[in-house]
Write a protein that binds this DNA or RNA. Sequence first.
DNA 1: CTGTTAGCGCGTTCAG
DNA 2: CTGAACGCGCTAACAG
Lengths: 339, 339
Amino acid sequence: MVTIKDVATASGVSPSTVSRVIADSPRISKNTKKKVRKVMKELGYHPNVSARNLVAKSTKAIGVIMPSSADTALQNPFFPEILRGIGSVIHKEKYSMSLTTGTSDKEILQEVERMVFGRYVDGIILLYSRINDPVTNFLRENDFPFVIVGKPYEQESMTTYVDNDNFQAGKEITQHLIEKGHEQIAFIGGSLDLFVTVDREEGYVEAMKEAGLEIMDAYKIHTEFLKSGGREAVEYLLSCDIRPTGLVVSDDLISLGILSRLEEAGFSIPEDISLVSFNNVYLSEITSPALTTVDIQIYELGSQSAKALIEKTTNMEEPPKRIIIPHKIVYRNSVNKLT
Amino acid sequence: MVTIKDVATASGVSPSTVSRVIADSPRISKNTKKKVRKVMKELGYHPNVSARNLVAKSTKAIGVIMPSSADTALQNPFFPEILRGIGSVIHKEKYSMSLTTGTSDKEILQEVERMVFGRYVDGIILLYSRINDPVTNFLRENDFPFVIVGKPYEQESMTTYVDNDNFQAGKEITQHLIEKGHEQIAFIGGSLDLFVTVDREEGYVEAMKEAGLEIMDAYKIHTEFLKSGGREAVEYLLSCDIRPTGLVVSDDLISLGILSRLEEAGFSIPEDISLVSFNNVYLSEITSPALTTVDIQIYELGSQSAKALIEKTTNMEEPPKRIIIPHKIVYRNSVNKLT
DNA sequence: CTGTTAGCGCGTTCAG
DNA sequence: CTGAACGCGCTAACAG
């Protein structure tokens, strides 16, 4: 392994000079810089990060925590996409990304503990936001820099997070249905432990209220994310006295399941029932019909959270920030106009 | 920050004794171990990995390289699932995982170079296998430990890889269609640059040949992975003189697109056309109809590759290995029996 | 069984 | 503009 010393002797300077060349210090002559760099190339020198981290007391690495992978929710294309977003700024800033995919709460916590106690990373991005999350608590207790993708459960004003205005998005997409003449509109969401679900549902409720439409309890369904592909949700819905004509579904992947179940039950979308949802992942444009959905800019969610975290780790005095990524409705073919 | 020295003085022993306690060395008395451990707890001591890595010349970290994320192929649920598999053994072995999501070949190569030259990781897992891949070449040139998920393009016997028997899988799934009475069977695959595509297609060809069925060139279609959701593929297929009654599609996500396009064109699956595919990702069971598909055990693919890599980095003399993960057909509702 | 010493590769004073 | 010396936190001989 070629070290800074080898470069030094080979180019006839001292190790510290080489170190300065690496840091591109302004107090090194153009000439020696050129000379040293040439030798570095020739010898194939590359700085050893462990050594550097040791003295720098920083790793230029950030940890990314996935939600518990016990269920199939992780197969949501949301995750690769947000990783892409994070990866883009990681690359630009020459950071590295450490990933965690624990199965249970305990496992995840263990991995996070290793990360922060071992100083594996300078900061952490949480790809989920849950009620009473042990990881969040741990991070706060240890005063370790982190940012949440989603809305934090508590201490909202004290923590940096990147989110959409899910309330507004839920409201707008519901209004779209209302404008198209729908009045019996149901909401199908994932677990209520997840803040996204709650926010989007509240937006739905608000839109209904403003329009003077009735919201039946039976119209608000929470299926354990993806459970049996939404079969239960659909059966439940179809058993209602008055069948809804419009559906607001909180996630594209859930929509796929709902779509299939509805079709099996003999309904045509959007002729019989209209459906709108959220995320605009790739698959929402290849379903039949293609989904009218809220584009939440997942990639942006990722890149902004990485950016915010890096700022935070760079400048510990950086105040908590709330970053709202704009959304926009993508109109496709899953909504019918009622006459 | 509390270091090994602090623990040492606080417990009245030398730093090296503490170090030995951490390593659980057998030549330290039960008593001092207990004493030192107690102090560690009290002081909240945790070893600094950078320092440790520096002397150990190893990081107990492995790098995971995603394929180019330029296209939407990355949104394939295959990836979260394989990350889960890798993560499981990473966790068990107390390793950590460093992830890369470059957009272009150049970007990816840069990130890999950083990883290996900076000694960020002890080894690398490649989540793709492509013809003439610069990353693979780089790794080989530098004699850096890596394992490929999929079949390597060259030096097959010299490189460790984890794969399915895609040829056999392609053959079996095609035979299933044949047994159900199909004779006009087409193959729709992704890019021919990917080895999976080629292998599965060859299996298809073999099955057709063995059954004495004709393979028309027009029946072998390669759509740039996911391109326009398979619209072109379907249009092309429907323009054939003799319309196929069975489709072998090389990926569940592509199947989803094909399914939709077929439906739009007025065909019922499986009544009019039967379809089978590969991967058995979650969405294949919530489509309508649910897909008959080859379960390739993605999770296992991931965990085995991590295991193999760790072995390799632990023992550099470990010979190259080929690990074949068994597959199995999952029968669902996308195939019809012809009479 | 335990302490002392040295050094991993690098950045950073402090001199010059 | 450059070099010498020190230390980051830890492990690994070498002594005892």
